[in-house]
């Protein structure tokens, strides 16, 4: 990581470790020209942009899968050692989380579907853990990655729109699946066509409104989480640009505040997912 201007520093911190395909004849950041199209790590932000869709954020994928495996591993570990007697500390933690999610689903979801509660648990804990990675000081992991030869490295998957949209698209597919499954193709189409105005002349207007409302759901889910996490990270990066002696006076309160934001955003994502799926199960 070279000494850099604040703008470069910020941009550097907001660029993912991208592994993608560059076309033949592409001039790279160091001036060399690609002889033929091939997969490689991006060495500048511009390269990452030029890779287009055929690229993957290795840091986002790696960290999200790592915390996901940590979550499932921990819970599975507890699940295989569950005791009906007095629970130990770890089991207690897991049970509290589970009961919290169970209560949430019971209050919000009106219907019977054994998938919803575990889904909500996965979303809540996974997003919480991914968000929580943000509490690691912004320079630690990028420095280590730099020492290992990786130019860019962002550890918080939820500050990458791919990360949040990936989850919200999964939720969206579930919404569509259950809408069609519970209401049938005809029922779901009818619902889209005849709400909110139950009159044949307003069918096109209704369709426009309802389809827009449907599509807005995953977008708002993903953007809300991404926006909050991204903004928080930018603030952390900005604070890191300040003189060393003043950093902690801002860093510490912001981190404490983020304990709340991290939990709240995970909670909001979970609640809205359950609410959306609940409305997908309801026949009007």
């Amino acid at each position: 990581m070279a000494a850099e201007t604040p703008v470069e520093y910020i941009q550097h911190h907001l660029t993912n470790l991208t592994y993608g395909k560059l076309p033949a004849g592409y001039e790279r950041a160091d001036g060399s020209v690609m002889q033929e199209a091939s997969w490689t790590f991006a060495t500048s932000g511009q390269e990452a942009v030029d890779m287009g869709f055929m690229a993957i954020h290795v840091d986002t994928m790696g960290w999200s899968i790592a915390v996901g495996l940590f979550f499932l591993g921990l819970f599975r570990f507890v699940a295989t050692r569950m005791t009906e007697g007095t629970p130990g500390g770890l089991q207690n933690l897991v049970e509290i989380t589970l009961e919290f999610i169970q209560g949430l689903v019971r209050d919000t979801f009106h219907g019977k579907n054994p998938l919803i509660a575990p889904l909500a648990l996965t979303i809540f804990v996974w997003i919480f853990l991914m968000n929580a990675l943000k509490l690691i000081p912004v320079d630690y992991v990028p420095y280590i990655a730099h020492a290992m030869g990786l130019e860019y490295f962002r550890i918080v998957p939820t500050t990458d729109p791919n990360g949040t949209f990936g989850i919200s698209i999964g939720v969206f597919l579930l919404i569509l699946f259950y809408s069609f499954k519970v209401k049938g193709v005809g029922g779901f189409t009818k619902e889209l066509a005849f709400t909110p105005f139950n009159h044949w002349s307003l069918v096109p207007f209704n369709l426009l409104l309802e389809i827009l409302a449907l599509i807005i759901k995953p977008i708002s889910l993903a953007l809300r989480l991404f926006g909050n996490m991204y903004a928080g990270e930018v603030i952390f990066v900005l604070i890191a640009l300040l003189p060393l002696w003043i950093q902690w006076t801002l860093n510490f309160p912001w981190a404490v505040f983020h304990l709340l934001v991290i939990t709240l955003q995970a909670f909001i994502f979970t609640v809205l997912t359950v609410v959306y799926l609940s409305s997908a199960h309801e026949d009007h």
Partner: peptide, 25 residues
């Protein structure tokens, strides 16, 4: 940049949910 990560994340999400439904919950 929106790219393959999106799909990768969706797949990871689906696998995690499946595992949670089957072996954790």
């Amino acid at each position: 940049n929106i790219n393959l990560t999106l799909i990768g994340q969706s797949i990871a999400f689906a696998i995690f949910v499946w595992f949670c439904v089957k072996y954790v919950w």
